[in-house]
Amino acid sequence: MDKLRTLEIFLATCDGGSFASAAKSCNTDPSTVSKAVSRLENQLGLTLFQRSTRQIRITLAGERYAQTVRKMFQDLSACEDELKESNEVPKGILRISSAVCYGHLYLRPMLKDFCQRYPDIQLDLEMNDLHVDIIEQDIDIALRTGYLKDSRLVAKQLSPMDFLVCASPVYLKKHGIPKCVEDFSSHDWIGFRIKQTGQLQPIFLPDKSGQYIPCELPRTHITDDGEAMANMCIDGFGVAQLPHFLAKKALKERKLISLFPYYRPPQQDSGVFVIYPKREFMPARVRVFIEFLNESLRTMGEGHNYTWVQDWQHEVSF
């Protein structure tokens, strides 16, 4: 018999004043109750009840022990109620880890509306491009461009990650418009170094049939910061292949020109993902945040299998 069950029987005996009464309230028989109490007394090395042929009477040690056990059950019940409520009501601290650029450009502008909708949720926001162990770091949600497969985690795609070959109008006026892969040998290229691996992000350009192929091109300039890469492109340092969330604002403001139709990597793990620990009961603060993310992205023309880029008409005239 487990300890909690034994303690329940002990309290029932205290409250009922007899083994028979305790047996009735615990849905068992008096013999089982008597044995459970005796076993508890042997474990403690104390006499909890004085027994006679006609009645049992709790001892001073038994009364003191009963007070402690009763308080323990009350605290346990209160804790369970609080945890159930926190799982059902959106409140508490929500710990978020986001990829840096996506966090600044997409996530941060959403947060004011989220906090206004859920004022009882407090945010703990970390911007980090490294794939941290979110379970070890006690993180509720991570937003990542790509993910590492981990059986402890759930990864749901918020959107694909579409790439656009971009250059500034000033750069194109000075250096001309590249029409095909061969033209890029005479152009400056801005490369992106992936922090996680230290490798350069591959470049994919369309061949004559329009199919995207990997291209080995020298990078004139290199950075490991996405926003720096986009701004260098805007400033005329060269051509860059930018993910949709980095290119969006500059394209709409015509600070950048899209040279080719978008490229979408075929790998299933190349999109933007929301990642969280696998658990049977998801806290309400996590559930409503994921719902809010998807809702906000839909208003921006994005979903788990599309981005705004699909409706964007690339052009090179200016």
Rank of each mutant, 00 (worst) to 15 (best):
G191M: 10
A155M: 07
C233F: 13
A78H: 04
Q122R: 15
L105K: 15
L158K: 14
F19E: 03
Q267K: 07
L205T: 13
R70H: 09
Q43P: 01
S258G: 14
K278W: 00
V274R: 02
I190V: 15
M72S: 10
R144P: 00
I275P: 01
L107H: 02
V274T: 07
E295P: 02
F245H: 15
V181Y: 03
R117K: 12
G92D: 05
Q310H: 10
K84C: 09
H131L: 06
L46I: 05
T6K: 11
Q267P: 01
Y147S: 00
F204V: 00
H314Y: 11
R285L: 09
Y147N: 01
Y306G: 03
D235G: 13
F10D: 04
M161E: 08
D140E: 13
K3V: 06
S209M: 09
V309R: 06
R279K: 11
D124R: 10
P109W: 06
R70I: 01
L242V: 08
L11Q: 07
C233L: 15
E41P: 05
T299A: 06
K24W: 04
S209G: 06
S77V: 12
Q196K: 12
R70K: 13
I121T: 06
P109T: 08
K278A: 04
D162T: 09
A23S: 00
G176D: 02
F273W: 05
D162A: 08
A99Q: 11
P160W: 09
I177E: 05
D311R: 10
D138Y: 03
I194W: 09
F114Y: 13
D311F: 02
V170E: 04
G303W: 01
I194M: 10
N294C: 10
V33G: 06
K195T: 08
N305P: 09
C215D: 03
Y106R: 12
L44D: 05
F184V: 02
R95G: 11
I121G: 08
Y65L: 14
L148Q: 13
Q241K: 15
Q268N: 01
T223R: 02
T307H: 05
P202K: 12
V272M: 15
R57C: 05
S52T: 13
M229L: 14
F318R: 02
S186Q: 15
C101R: 11
I96A: 12
F184N: 03
I213P: 02
I213G: 07
T32P: 02
R287N: 07
M1W: 04
R108I: 14
I222R: 14
L172N: 03
C215H: 03
M282N: 03
Q50C: 02
S97E: 14
K35G: 01
Q201C: 04
T307M: 08
V154N: 03
I141C: 07
P243A: 08
D133V: 13
C233P: 15
T47K: 12
F163I: 11
Q268Y: 11
H187I: 12
N27M: 02
P261F: 04
D207Q: 14
F273D: 00
L158C: 11
L246G: 00
T68M: 11
I58M: 05
I177G: 00
E63V: 02
E85W: 15
I213A: 09
N231S: 10
S25T: 12
E136H: 01
K179P: 14
F192N: 01
D120M: 07
F292A: 11
D162K: 04
Q74Y: 06
S209K: 12
Y147M: 03
S86C: 14
R298Y: 03
E315N: 10
Q50D: 01
Q267V: 00
